[in-house]
Design a protein around this nucleic acid. Structure first.
Lengths: 377, 377
DNA sequence: CTGAAAGCGCTTACAG
DNA sequence: CTGAAAGCGCTTACAG
């Protein structure tokens, strides 16, 4: 190692060990030495193939991108040679010329110091799936609502055909340096309703989800319910969920007796904090709905420590249906939202809009949620 | 909506509702109408600014990219005009010309039908953090070891300055269509030792982690230990962990009595399956280490249902220290590995290698793990 | 069906 | 300090 390595690791504060690898082996993948071209970067270009074959570059280009507009023999020859020489098209050059990138820009929110949330990950999974199927690549830009993290704010232009904003408000999107792109590219918002900004939005029916949860509890005979709220400022998720909760209570005349506990965020510790508030309540609700699974689980953990039984003393329902919610003790009754489907459908709609096959209007599409019954309620 | 929408949703199998947005409002962000240029895509180019100012495009370019090589007055004028006209540099054109993209390509593994794992997410978080700090963007390509998912295999060229492979084997990387890029770009492997392929690798000391876990249990007096294994074929993670486990047992002469239970994968259900095997064991170990937190939690959940107490009857330790492992009942004693730091350090090393500031050799860097003591052991 | 030319939007030696 | 020219690697009318 050269001397430059030290400051790196000083900055990163890590203890580390160097080991020598078993050297002497050669790189596994790569071009063979006798390949032609390799002018600038060592890469084979269309011009190299053309020279090798005594053809015009335009013919080689056609053979690669539009095989049907070229002699079958020529196509075969070019294809073989391209493979032999290890040619891969330069994405930059092709996109610059055609004006199409076959790339989607995804703005994914993250809190400072926290990784992308599991819910967003599921949406991303749907995006990757559908984008891969359609031959699109994915450019990810983390956006930080708080502006604390060193997110990349460098404005980007020309590198994508469309934008997906996950759970993002207008400010969040701007913070990602995407404003300029938004003015020119089709855009869809997932998980958050932004139709008031004329942005097509594909969301889970969060209000219906909380309605379903409250309905389930009320049918079980609960009359005093609590809702553990999420953050009001950053996201748009708390409001519709609380509304759905209240709507169902109102229908049974139970609205007056309900308790709204401010959790603060969507994470476990917000749930434990909410539990502290709950435990201090003189007249405790018998059923609680958390704004997220993590909040519900943090809440359960804390009230179990205080000697309360779930669901016997307090029934608890979450929202998200994360993978581990089926394996906790008690396993968590929760509202499942079609996150992966939202990712897939949003990607499909956007790609179709990019190619002009679909007219993406600033409308709201709502996907249904459903209750997953387990042990906690 | 036009008629094209129906087949979309047939494919996606979703029930959905359209709502009309409150229309009539105008787009929030965008160029004002009297801006110049807008030849092809509606975007402002350097040529537009130059025309507006009566300058040569090269001067405008310099003013934007190299302010110090231009008259301060000119710089100011260009900067103002660029802002007013809403100019953002075309990333494609710039990169094509300079040969530098300021972009990193990340190959992230995913199992078919499953989203990216929490561990990989943490590494990605570190990558985003450090890349953002250094002004780099991140291109993500999901790679599918099984080849089942419709991952994007289109070969990409020219769009990144370096490649990060997370927890990937050579085959996995190839499946992502990255072989050609690998031959030309600096590459680093995170979480998986690939130095045998001459690829610099930055990993957690998994062997030491399992050694620490076994050590902790043995010091508590346990003499019969079990290890729930992960998959052998796909990943390289099981082997070093099992080795570390065995090494510590051997030191105390306990190796002969140990049990290795095949879990199958890293997820919860693998843990519950392993628990079934465990419950059938005539002479049960009193302490169990899972290859992952999810496996350990799935295991705990199942043996609790069978009437065993954790840690009184069976002590359980996991590996990963995921966020929710602190909130389960019992909370999980586990091995923490510096995933975020690995992401940050790997990104830093790679970027410095891209810019020639650092000579990235095919060596192995190992980051330390540590035991997090909670309730389960 | 193939070739020659122009151009996507930018940057950078090279002159002046 | 600024201008004119060339070129990154590709594609696509336009001729032939």
């Amino acid at each position: 190692m050269n001397g430059n390595s030290a400051p790196l690791f000083n900055d990163l504060g890590g203890i580390y060990h160097w080991q020598n690898s078993n050297s002497g082996r050669t790189q596994v993948m790569g071009n063979t030495e006798d390949d032609v071209g390799a002018a600038r970067s060592g890469r084979v270009r269309i011009a190299d193939i053309a020279r090798e074959l005594g053809l015009n570059p335009s013919t080689v280009s056609r053979a690669i991108s539009n095989p049907n507009r070229v002699n079958p023999e020529t196509h075969k020859l070019v294809a073989q040679t391209a493979r032999r020489m290890g040619y891969t098209a330069n994405h930059l050059a092709r996109s610059l010329r055609t004006g199409r990138t076959n790339t989607l820009l995804v703005a994914a929110p993250s809190q400072p110091g926290l990784p992308i949330s599991p819910v967003v990950i599921d949406v991303l999974h749907g995006i990757f799936f559908e984008a891969g199927r359609m031959g699109y690549s994915v450019f990810i830009r983390e956006t930080d609502p708080s502006g604390m993290a060193p997110t990349n704010r460098r404005p980007l232009s020309g590198l994508a055909d469309g934008i997906i904003s996950i759970s993002g408000t207008a400010e969040i999107i701007q913070s990602g340096g995407l404003a300029a792109e938004m003015a020119h590219l089709p855009l869809i918002s997932l998980l958050t309703d932004q139709t008031q900004l004329n942005i097509p939005s594909l969301i889970a029916d969060e209000a219906a989800g909380l309605y379903q949860a409250a309905d389930y509890l009320i049918r079980q005979g609960h009359v005093k319910l609590a809702y553990i709220a999420g953050p009001l400022d950053i996201s748009e998720h708390d409001r519709p969920r609380y509304q759905g909760f209240c709507r169902r209570l109102e229908e049974s005349g139970l609205l007056d007796g309900h308790v709204r506990i401010e959790g603060g965020s969507y994470d476990f510790s917000s749930g434990t904090r909410a539990a502290e508030t709950f435990l201090d309540l003189p007249d405790k609700p018998t059923a609680v709905i958390g704004v997220s699974d993590a909040v519900a689980l943090g809440f359960i953990r804390r009230i179990k420590d205080a000697g309360l039984r779930v669901p016997e003393d307090v029934a608890v329902i979450g929202y998200d249906d994360l993978a581990y919610s089926a394996y906790t003790s008690p396993s968590l009754t929760t509202i499942s939202q079609p996150t992966v489907e939202i990712g897939k459908a949003g990607t499909r709609l956007l790609i179709d809009a990019c190619s002009g096959r679909f007219d993406l209007k600033p409308q709201l599409i709502t996907m249904p949620t459903h209750l997953v019954r387990r042990e906690s309620a």
